[in-house]
Write a protein that binds this DNA or RNA. Sequence first.
DNA 1: CGGTCTCTTGACGGAGTTCAAAGCTAGTGG
DNA 2: CCACTAGCTTTGAACTCCGTCAAGAGACCG
Lengths: 191, 191
Amino acid sequence: MHAVLLQELKKHINLTAAEEELITASFRYKKVRKSQFLVQPPDIALYEHFVVSGCLMEYYLDDNGTQHTLIFAPEKWWTTDLHSFLKKEESRYYIEALEDTELLIITREALDNLLKEVPLLNNYFRILYQNAIMGLEERLLNVLSSKVEERYLRFLKKYPQLENRLPQYLIASYLGVTPEFFSRVKSRIHR
Amino acid sequence: MHAVLLQELKKHINLTAAEEELITASFRYKKVRKSQFLVQPPDIALYEHFVVSGCLMEYYLDDNGTQHTLIFAPEKWWTTDLHSFLKKEESRYYIEALEDTELLIITREALDNLLKEVPLLNNYFRILYQNAIMGLEERLLNVLSSKVEERYLRFLKKYPQLENRLPQYLIASYLGVTPEFFSRVKSRIHR
DNA sequence: CGGTCTCTTGACGGAGTTCAAAGCTAGTGG
DNA sequence: CCACTAGCTTTGAACTCCGTCAAGAGACCG
C-alpha cells in the first residue's frame, strides 16, 4: 500500500531505508466508498490526500448551486483544499470520492515534522507545487482562449484514463459548461 | 536594492548575515524600460524575476493574436515563465514591462546552488508556490462561475495599487473579456 | 418491473464578441 | 505652446456561443 507512495516519491528524490520508514509511519491508510466526502465546507481540511486507487474530485459550489470542478485526482494524484489545510481555516471546496477509493493521508502536523526529518521531501513538494502551478496556468488559459471543443480534447489528453469512468455532467463541470451544452458539443464532434 | 528582497524573504523565514550575503551575491540587478520584453517566445526564460519597482505582466498570445494576461507583477512580486525556466524549454508566455522597472534576477543554476546553500529558502519558495496555487485556483473559479462585474471587483481587491496605472484594455485581458465589452461593464457599474 | 439518475433535443434568452466609426488623451516634435 | 499623431476608450448594430427551462428517452439498480 505505502509502496505506491514510495514509488511515486522516488520518481523525483532518493530515499534511504530509514527515511522510507519515517514516511510510511507518517501516512495513515483510509478507505472510502463512492460518494463519500473527504472535505465538506465549512469543515477544516485535516489531511493532504494521496490516492492509491480509485478517484477523487475537488469542486466548488457557487451561489446558484452549480458545481465547478477544480481537479480530478485518480491514482497517484494528491489533493486537498490547500488553503484550508495550510491555514486551518474553513474549507470552501468539496472533496468527494467518485469511486470506492483507497488513500494515504497525512495531517498538517505530521507533514511539518516529516519535512523536518526528511528535508529532501521539501524538494518533492516543491516540484509537486510547481507542476500544479503549470497545470493551473494552462487550464486558466484554456478557459480564457479556447472553445469548448478544444478544451474537451485537452481534457482527454490530460486524463486519458478517466473518459469512461466519469459521468458526462462531471466532465462538463470541469470544462466549465452546462451538461446540456456539452452534450451538443460531443454530438457535433462525432460528425 | 537587495534590501527589498531580503525584507520580503524575512517575512517568512529567518536569515543569518552570512546567508543574506549569499543571497545578495546570487541575484543580479537589472533595469528595463516600459514596453521592453524580459521573456519573448520562443526564447527560453533564463531568470526568475523579482520586481523591486515598476510592474511586469505575463501573458499568452493565442492563435487569433488575442492577449490573455496570466498575472501582473508589481513591486515585490515574482514572475517568470515557470515551465520554460524549470525545464529549459521554449517559452510560451511573454513577460513585458508595463512601466520602467527595476528587477533582481537569478538564473536556474544560481537558484539551485542557493537552495543547497540556504536550505531554508526551500521553505520560502514552497510557501510562494502554495500561494500561487491558491491564487490560481481562485482565479479559475472566478472565470468559471462569476460575471465580469464581480471579477472586476475582485481584481480591484487583489491589485488595489494597479487600477490607475494600467490601461483598461490590459485589465480587460486579465478579466478575460474584450476591451469593448469591459468598457460597457464599467459604465454599467457607475450607475 | 418501477424509480431515480443521466443524457439528449428543442426553443428561447442573455452575456459577450466582432466590426466599424467616432471621440478622447497624451506624447512628441516643431 | 501648439498641432499632430497614435493609441486608447466609447458607442452602436448584428451575430455567436452558451445558458435556461422543459420534456422525453435511455440506463442502471433495487
